[in-house]
Amino acid sequence: MTATQNDGLGRILEGSAQALAQAKAEFEATPIDQDWSADLPAPRLARARTIARPVEVSAPGTFSKNSIRTLRLEPTDLSGWWLERCDIPDSRPIKVSIRNVWTTGEIVSNIVLRSGSVHNYVRLVEHIIALKAGMDVDNLLIKLDSGDPPLFNAGSKELVEAINSAGRKELATPVRYFTVKERVSLLTPHNGLLQIDPAEEGSLRLDIDCVRNFPNAIGQQRIRFVNNERSFLHGSTARTNTTARQKLLVTTFGKLFPESRNLGYNSKNVLIAGKRRYSNEPTHMHEGKSLEAAWHRAVLDLLAALALIDEGRFVGKIIDYKGGHYPDVEMVKLLYAYDLLKEV
């Protein structure tokens, strides 16, 4: 397979050079609201880690708001992160991997992983698996009582706290780091840009420059940071966002569709953006402006896609402008299809 080459955009994996150049110009013209790129990166680790002891966390279901759903996190020697449906007899664990992505949703945008039987799936996994790319846990077994994970009120805060309370156990296997062989670019469905650069020689940093651009209260938001404990903990508490119109549709016509009929979104666990103002109280304020949408996108959505690179941790530099789950997953698929990943 081949892809178009462009000096400023690198290897173009999807979209035209003209549309990508326009998206990059819009991205570069967006002022930076918050810049944590001067921070130290996450520590360089030699050995893989798992948690030291099992721990559980529960909340109302994402797609079954009247039922409490529980995640049981257990240490494992299995390489990578695994999801096990305990409610399905004899089902095999689902590895967190690009190879097991079933869909990124239509009515409700979310990453769904599946392995084997069509019944052996887990929906809206992004807010769980983002922790694989953002925390120091390389191997983990997550047991679920259904394919519907819990929905927390503050992003993935409770899940992060549960993992931290479990402690760590170092394993004999080494940590593996991967980056791209060259700059790659992809056009998103909303004429945005997803661009990845290789890590610098001798560096194991993951730098992210993320822009949200909406014609509503969210408006333009740009954050730049290096992935480390401070930035991940900050972003992990940011809620997903929706428009007031989408929220109304889900609670009315959405009741006709299985994908959204029992969706547990409410004014506490999602940020609701109206045309000129938020319908509920935004968080992640910086100099009088909420950057909650940008932090959620960069940490709990974008890092989730990097977690699908199942062989190890990803390092490099990422530009994200008007991104979403579909282009995230498409990018990772194309990195494998074009053999563009290399071990550092």
Rank of each mutant, 00 (worst) to 15 (best):
A21V: 08
V270D: 00
V160N: 00
F178G: 08
I94F: 02
V270I: 08
W102Y: 11
A337S: 15
T251F: 04
N266Y: 09
A17R: 10
T103W: 01
F253G: 06
Y326E: 15
G8R: 13
V299Y: 00
K333V: 10
T2S: 14
Y278N: 08
G288N: 08
T188I: 07
I111C: 02
T70F: 04
G324E: 10
T251G: 00
R11L: 14
R245K: 13
G219S: 12
I142L: 02
T103E: 13
A244F: 05
I163L: 12
W81E: 00
N100H: 14
N164T: 14
L334Q: 15
C210R: 02
N139L: 08
R69N: 03
N110M: 07
T103G: 04
F152M: 01
G288Y: 07
N266P: 12
L249W: 12
N66E: 14
I68R: 14
V137L: 01
I223H: 05
Y326P: 10
G312A: 07
I319V: 15
W36T: 11
A133P: 12
T104A: 03
Y121I: 01
I32Y: 03
L300H: 09
D136Q: 09
R205P: 03
I208K: 00
S97I: 05
S79P: 06
Q246G: 13
A294E: 05
Y336L: 03
G134Q: 06
R212M: 15
G288T: 02
V118M: 05
L171M: 12
I107W: 02
L341T: 10
D209H: 08
K247I: 11
A337R: 13
T173W: 04
E281G: 13
R99G: 13
E56M: 12
D39W: 00
T237M: 05
T240L: 04
V108Q: 11
K322D: 09
R222W: 01
K289N: 04
L306F: 14
N120F: 02
V101K: 05
N139T: 08
D320L: 14
E182A: 15
H127E: 10
T4A: 06
K317D: 15
K181P: 12
A273L: 06
N6P: 05
A162C: 10
A162Y: 05
R92D: 07
Q246P: 07
R85K: 00
I223L: 10
L131A: 11
L335Q: 03
R313W: 01
E161K: 06
H296L: 08
L303S: 10
L335I: 14
L334W: 09
I107H: 11
D39V: 00
L40D: 11
P54Q: 09
Q220S: 12
F225M: 00
I272C: 11
Q221G: 03
P43Y: 07
Y265W: 08
L341R: 01
Q5F: 11
N227W: 01
L13V: 12
V101P: 15
G274Q: 12
A298H: 06
T283D: 01
R72K: 15
N241T: 15
V329Q: 08
P149N: 07
M285C: 07
K268C: 10
T173S: 13
I51C: 10
K317Y: 13
R44V: 14
I309F: 03
D310S: 09
D87Y: 11
M135G: 05
P150D: 07
D77H: 10
S58M: 05
V344T: 09
L124M: 14
I223N: 03
R313Q: 01
G10I: 10
S67P: 04
I111H: 00
Y177W: 12
T251W: 07
H190W: 00
D33N: 14
